[in-house]
Design a protein around this nucleic acid. Structure first.
Length: 125
RNA sequence: CAAGUAAAUCGCCUUAUCGCUGCGCUUUUGCGUAGAGGAAAGUCCGAACACCAUAGUGCAACAUAGUGGUUAAUGGCCACCAGCCGAGAGGCUAGGAAAAGUGCAACAGAAAGUAUGUACAGGUAAUGCUGUAGUGAAACCAGGUAAACUCUAUGUGGUGCAAUGUCAUGUAAACCAGCGUUUGAAGGCGGCACGCUUAAGGCUGGAGGGUAGACAGCUAAAGUGUAUUAGUAAUAAUGCACUCAGAUAAAUGAUAAGGGUGUUUUGUUGUUGUGGAUGAGAUUCUGAAACAAGUUCAGAACAUACAGAAUUCGGCUUAUAGGUUUACUUUAACA
């Protein structure tokens, strides 16, 4: 697993997203929240991941784009530390539930905490 | 110089590392190349395109409203006229009709129209019956108001790319054909009526594709740049050159370093004006341990906006740190 984050690893199917929110479990580290569900894919990837920012909290598309880009970037750079050890494939959605536009460092710190919490929970189960 | 008016225009840059989307080449790993805006926004007008009758008729509803031009089209734009505002450059205009009708009208006034008081004068059998005065912009065959109803003229069919078409998967609904029934509902996506058209539910047979899955539509166009010509202008014609985003939980980024630009401030530099000194004057000196405002260089802090394509164009409206350019105006005050 490399530092890339291409189309194959993005969560695009509406069907899968509906299933994820219906059946998935979640962990959160404010202002981030991760919803995940074990899934089997044909492609050899660790997970299919999407990001989301509420339109209610950020009215302009510029702000939403900015946050989503930060989320994707920190996911891309930090996923290898945790997901290379996993044997199960997951469908994941990462939500931003804060109300202010963050800096990259803030997002990266929280993302690492979130991943730790996630892998602890998964390994226990 | 300052204050202002009208236009136009730019709206951060560079490098490194790691990435994203399309296309091309390689072939499984990479390489090359392209990759947001002046408003991409609001979705307010006008079109292209698609489907529903090649879009019908009447009413209703809505829109527009000086004259001429421009355009694919417009309610946009340009020119001119008129009115109003401003000292001016300029700005604004919802600029058709009040002799079709209905309504409305502050203050003053008895009364603003199914009214007629007071004073004086005239007249009658009698009476606001007649005149004058008085209020008011207006006092009765009148006038104002149509960003009041209304009337007139002109225009508008509806729905929007989640349109629409094709393909894959084969469990329903819907669909097609035949039979067959009725007090004849319902559909054709905005309100009514007419007209046109398809015709429910049931039975038999056929055929098939919902779930935003994929592909087309989907980016070569009323295109961009530039020059010339015509025109006061909007704009048009012609020549030359160029090809310039196509994502779909939605690419166009992240980080680091450096540089721009602006504001404030500290130091520095030393200009101009005022003041002071000198002198008959011209002038010269002073510029800090006189005052004010610029300039040069260096440092620091802060700021660097509004905002993200989604079928495509033409406009309008709104948001926008800061910068640049052009044309023009200046009543009063100061020099």
């Amino acid at each position: 697993m490399s530092l890339t984050y291409s189309k194959k690893e993005k969560l695009k199917s509406k069907k899968r997203i509906d299933q994820l929110f219906a059946e998935g479990q979640s962990v959160s580290v404010f202002p981030l929240r991760m919803v995940y569900l074990p899934t089997t894919f044909e492609e050899p990837i660790g997970a299919k991941t999407g990001v989301s920012v509420s339109k209610r909290n950020f009215k302009t598309a510029v702000d939403r784009n900015r946050i989503k880009r930060l989320l994707r970037e920190s996911y891309r750079l930090n996923k290898t530390r945790y997901f290379n050890n996993l044997t199960t494939q997951y469908t994941i959605m990462i939500l931003y539930i804060g109300k202010d536009v963050p800096t990259y460092n803030q997002v990266e710190n929280k993302m690492n905490l979130l991943f730790q919490k996630f892998s602890n929970k998964v390994s226990k189960a």
